[in-house]
Design a protein around this nucleic acid. Sequence first.
DNA 1: GCAGCCATGTAAGAGGTTACATGATTGA
DNA 2: TCAATCATGTAACCTCTTACATGGCTGC
Lengths: 189, 189
Amino acid sequence: MSLRHALLAALAQGEASGYELAKRFDVGVANFWSATPQQLYRDLERLEQDGLISARVVEQSKRPNKRVFTVTPAGQEELRAFGRRPAKPPAMRDEFLVKLQAVDPDDPAAMIAAATERLAWSRGKLAGYDKLRERMLAGRDEDEYLRAGEQIGPYLTLMAGRLYEQMNIRWATTVLETLTNRRTNRSAG
Amino acid sequence: MSLRHALLAALAQGEASGYELAKRFDVGVANFWSATPQQLYRDLERLEQDGLISARVVEQSKRPNKRVFTVTPAGQEELRAFGRRPAKPPAMRDEFLVKLQAVDPDDPAAMIAAATERLAWSRGKLAGYDKLRERMLAGRDEDEYLRAGEQIGPYLTLMAGRLYEQMNIRWATTVLETLTNRRTNRSAG
DNA sequence: GCAGCCATGTAAGAGGTTACATGATTGA
DNA sequence: TCAATCATGTAACCTCTTACATGGCTGC
């Protein structure tokens, strides 16, 4: 039931089309939720039917037309009500951790490859977050923004995303070192 | 398709009953996946039908009997094959972040309550992880364990869980300070 | 000329959540 | 006596993923 609210929260930042939202959600630019484009299109339909968002067709000459969505007053009220309800505990689904849990110390090659991939992925996400942050800060420093910046919610969730990927980068580095050291020890001893 | 593998990975650490696994997964003691007990019972059934795990009934006098599950050789092979396939990117579902994204700076009361709750939750999880860690380390220090500890996979995933909650605690503290400071400034100015 | 982006969707199936059901034992 | 723990499940429902479909434009 909560992708609806994630969509409302994303649209609260300003109107967007399904495609634009999909980029944020599918690629995972949304650090607070993840979803595929198909889900978005379907839930946007429903949100519109429920009167929580309204659509406006923007005609484009050299590109397909797009439907741009805005949160209605009813949608804003729903968001506020959602904010007051108790939150479900966060849920994580991380295949890499599942694999690592069951790693065979005598054959870590696949895991070393997977950890390298994860490291690259986290670096890419962090780079994306950093760009967005520069745009939001617009020259100010973090303390200043936290005191008086306009979009405090988005900044704080972005901060969570950055801290998370920074942590991942440090951790994945330790994982790589640990697995390669153990392999070296084994072939040397 | 991957709760199956999470279950196999969990059972690779040693046999367990559905109820025992449920505690790890439902409470979220499994820092790498989350699932409800109902899912576990259903998927354990399927894993058994597919010959990836085998069940053994343990009769108990003062408690209901339980079915204890073990990974079969076929299950171990499936786990290895899973380890070699590319991992899906991690997925996050965090309602608190959704709420925070859309916070109204003029009425942060609900969000301050939610952040306080999250802080307490992360502290609780960290305390649980720390206990488990003490048991695994058994007097050794982390460097030593990373070099030569028996259960390197489980230690590394536990490490990820600890780092994640430590990060959450620091971040949630910043969120609380930010929201309360802004409120004070507003009522003072 | 081909890959990739913009833009939206349908349909089928797998995965996940919530509510309900049972029943003895243990500790406050 | 009341709540919690141990222990396992069914049924109904909702959500999410994957595969498929379309078609013009942009950049290499």
